[in-house]
Write a protein that binds this DNA or RNA. Structure first.
Lengths: 166, 166
DNA sequence: CCACTTTGGTTGCTTATTGAAACTGATGCT
DNA sequence: AGCATCAGTTTCAATAAGCAACCAAAGTGG
């Protein structure tokens, strides 16, 4: 068979192109349907048919997406809390941590894509009952993060999770 | 058999399904290549060939993605700051506001997808020179946002941008 | 000025993915 | 039992992605 050496992602000895966390994440969740499934999951949707009706997605695609989300550890299947013997897809801890991503998408969409007067369903802040105010990324010391204050650094190994807070 | 009435997405006269900002945003940027283009744009990449080399994307696909990002007002073309007469793709204000999205993707990827010891390029905090600490979404009053404190509200019209802060 | 390279695409062609619908086989409901 | 619902799987047409070749305009070296 021809083409004996094609998949040249990383060669031995070559300076391994550093893994990009953005790319890895985009590979898993950088997909229209996947993002909408996550949105629905955060809105409490649990069952196959609920996702299907909410999204209008083809069943085979939904099946494939749910399977890959389960395989990725973002969703897991549960025995189905509602009496029935059907199982439910619920967010894992790993999945719940994608909340920021959906919030980022939502707030950007609200600010830049939704026209004034358009009817939409806002995310409410349970503490106040009002639509969630604009949230901003803060560092642990409470200072807000701006794009201009960041730059990409040189490749380095991922540090082991330091238990030292602050 | 027939099942004459299946596609019941939206009927005429029915209560119009409210626009979802997450869906609108996902339609525009919920795509692997688009997310990676944005990542690169935030990393300072400006020109067609730079994007192409950085991503290894086919040029026709890159061309289509850049065009649609320009059409969406996320990028704009500039005369090319570097002397040459070639033009550059730069983030608009609307595009810069997607920074949170890329940060969310990046931090989630760093926490859940990158193994300890793996070499990657961290985003540095220019103020400290150290890798960006874990940033969290805060409300204007400084309280952190948790998924469990939110719920989806009833449809309502988009409020006109209130100039009243706080 | 002329040859050659790089840039920023476009056009065709070949795969891979999506999406609509039909088919299956378990529940669940009365 | 009989029918609807649920959670898929399979099949197949339409769409999109990826690849290679081509091209014109701009830059580069001599």
């Amino acid at each position: 068979m021809p083409d004996p050496d094609d998949r040249r992602e990383q060669h031995a000895g070559a300076p391994v192109p550093p893994t990009c966390p953005v790319m890895s994440a985009a590979d898993l969740v950088g997909d229209r349907w996947t993002l909408l499934i996550l949105r629905d999951a955060f809105n409490g949707i649990r069952r196959f048919s609920q996702f299907q009706r909410s999204l209008g997605i083809a069943r085979n695609i939904l099946s494939a997406r749910l399977s890959s989300l389960v395989a990725a550890g973002i969703l897991h299947t549960e025995p189905g809390a509602d009496g029935t013997s059907y199982s439910a897809y619920a967010l894992t801890h790993k999945g719940i941590e994608l909340f920021d991503l959906i919030v980022a998408l939502r707030q950007w969409g609200e600010r830049h894509l939704i026209d004034d007067g358009t009817v939409y369903r806002p995310l409410l802040d349970i503490r106040t009952g009002a639509p969630l105010p604009r949230v901003t990324y803060m560092r642990p010391d409470g200072t807000p993060l701006h794009h201009s204050e960041t730059r990409l650094g040189e490749p380095r190994p991922m540090a082991t999770e330091e238990p030292s807070s602050i």
